[in-house]
Design a binder for these strands. Structure first.
Length: 270
DNA sequence: ATATGCACCTGTGTGC
DNA sequence: TGCACACAGGTGCATA
């Protein structure tokens, strides 16, 4: 579910809560694809001290002192929740990481998310090889250059491809297209250099603006404190099918593109 | 080499 | 109230 702003919000909160903390115990509620080699995973985590919680694309990276750690992908409904030690397990809880003063729950309704251990930096790097540049770190010029080829590709499909630019998902792809005045159905070859630079800047702008409000909760994303993201009130097109465009009042249109619900203003976006 | 469709799961909202 | 169906923030695969 979560895209870059939501994952980064969770990263910041987890990092603040866990840096320097030792994982004293782990409760494993369910073993399956989402927790590969469950007992082995638990054994690799217990007793480790958190050095940092980092992020690459939509992946959270738990780094332990000594170089090992694990990555976590929230996919559509994954959550890390910070809870008190006397917390009662809830439906869809998969893991509980227990520290001296609190605990972190890994909960995932749809089981698409996963955690996966790595033993050292080399193993971690091998898990991160196929991602494009980070949009909040890279310059607009760098991002614009990622949208040149393949020429026949749909703009929306390119934006969703994590190997092109990392971290953009369905919400921010649609929002960035609207803010750029570009239809998501445009082929890359039809974009001018100025338009590529515009959308690159809008990608950075919309991700930053959303991050400042702890992301977007349209359905069930929650941060580690169970709080909703505040950016939902500022969405221009996502989830607004049939509602008037905030700029020109034309009803927002919804189509399927790249297999995803895609929202745009037929008047403002060309 | 791209697009499409489906698969992975569960929950929720809608319309009959 | 029940039921059937569409749809959901992500990816990865098989097929066209």
């Amino acid at each position: 579910m979560p895209e870059l702003p939501e994952v980064e919000t969770v990263r910041r909160q987890l990092h603040a809560a866990l840096q320097g903390q030792t994982i004293q115990a782990v409760d494993l509620y369910l073993t399956g694809r989402e927790v590969p080699a469950g007992p082995l995973f638990v054994a690799g985590v217990v007793g480790k001290t958190v050095e940092s919680i980092d992020r690459r694309a939509k992946l959270l990276i738990w780094r332990f002192k000594g170089g090992s750690g694990f990555i976590g992908h929230l996919k559509m409904t994954g959550k890390f929740l910070l809870v008190p030690l006397d917390y009662t397990p809830a439906k869809h809880d998969r893991l509980k990481f227990i520290t001296k003063s609190s605990a972190v729950i890994w909960n995932d309704v749809r089981k698409f998310g996963y955690v996966k251990a790595f033993a050292n930096t080399t193993e971690l790097e091998s898990l991160l090889t196929s991602y494009g540049p980070e949009p909040l770190i890279s310059s607009a010029e760098q991002l614009a250059a990622c949208l040149l080829t393949p020429k026949t590709r749909l703009l929306k499909a390119a934006l969703l491809d994590q190997t092109v630019i990392a971290g953009i998902g369905n919400i921010y792809a649609d929002e960035a297209c609207f803010l750029s005045g570009l239809r998501p159905t445009r082929r890359l070859s039809t974009l001018t250099a100025a338009q590529r630079l515009t959308i690159a800047n809008k990608i950075k702008n919309v991700l930053s603006a959303s991050l400042a409000l702890n992301g977007t909760t349209s359905n069930n994303y929650l941060d580690v404190n169970g709080e909703r993201g505040g950016f939902v009130n500022f969405l221009q097109v996502y989830g607004r099918a049939g509602e008037p465009c905030r700029t020109c009042s034309t009803p927002i249109k919804k189509i399927t593109l790249a297999g995803r619900g895609t929202h745009y203003c037929p008047q403002c976006q060309k």
